[in-house]
Computed example of a mutant assay.
Amino acid sequence: MTMMEQGIQHMNEQQYEEAAKCFTAAIEENPKDPTGYINFGNLLGIVGDVERSLAFFDKAIELDEHAATAYYGAATIYYKKDQFEEAVKLFRKAVMEKLDEPDVHFMLGMSYYQLGSLPHALSSLKRAVELNGDDVDARFHYGLCLAQLEQVDEALNEFRQVVEKDENHADAFFNLGVAYAYKDQVQLALDSFNKALDIQPDHMLAANGKKTIENALK
Rank of each mutant, 00 (worst) to 15 (best):
Gln200Met: 11
Gln148Ser: 08
Val152Glu: 01
Asp166Pro: 09
Cys145Met: 12
Asn175Gln: 08
Ala196Met: 11
Ile199Trp: 11
Cys145Gln: 08
Leu149Thr: 02
Phe140Cys: 09
Asp166Ser: 05
Asp202Phe: 09
Asn194Gln: 12
Ala138Glu: 05
His203Glu: 12
Phe174Cys: 08
Val162Ser: 00
Ala189Trp: 01
Leu197Arg: 01
Ala147Gly: 02
Gln161Arg: 14
Leu197Lys: 02
Tyr182Trp: 12
His169Trp: 00
Arg160Leu: 08
Asp166Leu: 05
Arg139Met: 15
Leu156Ala: 05
Leu197Tyr: 01
Tyr182Gln: 07
Phe140Leu: 10
Ile199Arg: 05
Asp184Glu: 15
Tyr180Leu: 13
Tyr180Thr: 05
Arg160Gly: 05
Lys183Asn: 10
Val186Glu: 11
Leu188Asn: 14
Asp137Lys: 15
Ala172Ile: 13
Lys195Gln: 14
Ser192Ala: 09
Leu156Arg: 07
Ala179Trp: 04
Ala170Glu: 07
Ala170Asn: 06
Tyr182Ala: 06
Phe159Gly: 07
Asn194Arg: 06
Asn157Met: 14
Ala196Ile: 00
Cys145Glu: 11
Gly133Met: 06
His203Gln: 09
Met204Pro: 10
Leu146Glu: 00
Asn132Glu: 13
Ala181Arg: 05
Gln151Leu: 01
Asp198Trp: 04
Asp166Met: 02
Gln187Phe: 11
Pro201Val: 04
Asn194Cys: 02
Glu150Ser: 01
Glu150Ile: 00
Tyr142Gly: 08
Leu190Thr: 08
Asp171Thr: 14
Gln151Thr: 00
Asn194Thr: 03
Met204Val: 14
Pro201Trp: 08
Asp137Thr: 15
Ala189Phe: 03
Asn157Arg: 15
Asp153Asn: 15
Asp137Ile: 15
Asp171Ala: 13
Asp184Ala: 04
Pro201Lys: 08
Ala155Phe: 00
Cys145Phe: 05
Cys145Lys: 07
Cys145Ile: 01
Lys195Leu: 06
Asn168Arg: 12
Leu156Asn: 05
Met204Phe: 13
Glu167Met: 10
Asp191Ile: 05
Glu164Val: 14
Ala138Val: 09
Gln161Trp: 14
Gln151Val: 00
Gln200Glu: 12
Ala181Tyr: 04
Tyr180Pro: 14
Ala196Gln: 10
Asp184Tyr: 07
Val186Lys: 15
